[in-house]
Simulated assay, not measured.
Amino acid sequence: MPTPVTEEAPRILSLWQGSWAAALATGVLVWGLILWSVIFHRRSRTKVEVPPQTRYNMPIEALYTVVPLIIVSVLFYFTARDESKLLALDEKPAHTINVVGFQWSWGFNYVENVPGSDKADARTAKELDAIPERFRKDFPANAGGVYQVGTPGERNPQNGNPGPTLWLPKGEKVRFVLTSRDVIHSFWVVPFLMKQDVIPGHTNAFEVTPNKEGTFMGKCAELCGVDHSRMLFNVKVVSPERYKQHLEDLAKKNQTGYIPAGIEQTDREKNRETNQL
């Protein structure tokens, strides 16, 4: 497994390791019983009679019914516990970034108050209409924002890695709001140990707190068409001061405002959210 680079990733690593340990223990037990049966209950070379037959053994039948239920219940408990923690959202995250997936690259809307980016307001910007109100209400007031948008042939000038670069501040919580312009993608930063689908007409979100500076690889983890393999990007974790400077640099390049977030929610999805289905 990659080395975790967020405060949330060790929880995922622990769940993954625990699941594998449980699977290995179950496998060893099953393999052991199979080998024991093969060795000690093989057919005798000298005896030809039919061995004793055992039928309708209620204790054994109860055992192989109850034990799998216990195993599944334990795995379900730990998975549900960790999932609820990992998908919990703060009321006011320190930073919000709208990740836009499209064939065949990525765009990043930094929903921030950046000097020189007063052309738009994230809460009312038409480009962000695809994002539901439950997320937009948490946007900073009068956040003009800046953006970065990639192309399939783009490369990071520092390390030559393909795709655009998403900048994040170390030690500060970041909310990712995921939207798609066309088909289903999946936003996966490998050392985050977590990915989430980017679905047209449906908005997903999660939060992380990066705790290690560096440049890390990200990719689309959902087969999305002929150039799926080119949907790569980089994640650069820097100090909060350097992050702020990067946003100001984008504003100086006139990359202010927001790129279109994607396809708006379907009526069915709006109904699901309204009625908490």
Score class of each variant (00 low, 15 high):
7 E>A: 12
113 N>M: 03
36 W>E: 05
33 L>H: 03
11 R>F: 10
97 I>T: 12
28 V>N: 01
32 G>Y: 08
37 S>N: 14
122 A>W: 13
6 T>I: 11
100 V>E: 02
77 Y>Q: 14
96 T>S: 10
119 K>D: 13
62 A>N: 12
17 Q>H: 02
55 R>P: 02
55 R>N: 13
15 L>H: 15
96 T>A: 04
83 E>Y: 11
44 S>V: 01
90 D>P: 01
59 P>Q: 05
37 S>Y: 12
39 I>E: 09
31 W>T: 11
27 G>P: 01
131 I>D: 02
130 A>R: 03
45 R>N: 07
48 V>N: 08
109 N>R: 11
117 S>K: 06
65 T>S: 15
107 G>R: 06
66 V>R: 07
84 S>N: 11
49 E>C: 03
92 K>E: 09
19 S>L: 12
5 V>D: 09
23 A>W: 01
42 R>I: 00
42 R>K: 15
110 Y>R: 09
30 V>E: 02
12 I>P: 01
58 M>W: 13
105 S>H: 10
8 E>P: 05
48 V>Q: 11
16 W>N: 10
80 A>F: 10
34 I>W: 15
6 T>M: 06
58 M>K: 13
30 V>G: 06
30 V>L: 14
48 V>F: 05
102 F>S: 11
92 K>P: 05
81 R>I: 02
122 A>P: 13
57 N>V: 11
121 D>I: 03
95 H>A: 06
68 P>Q: 10
44 S>G: 05
18 G>H: 03
85 K>S: 13
120 A>Y: 11
71 I>R: 03
10 P>S: 02
16 W>I: 11
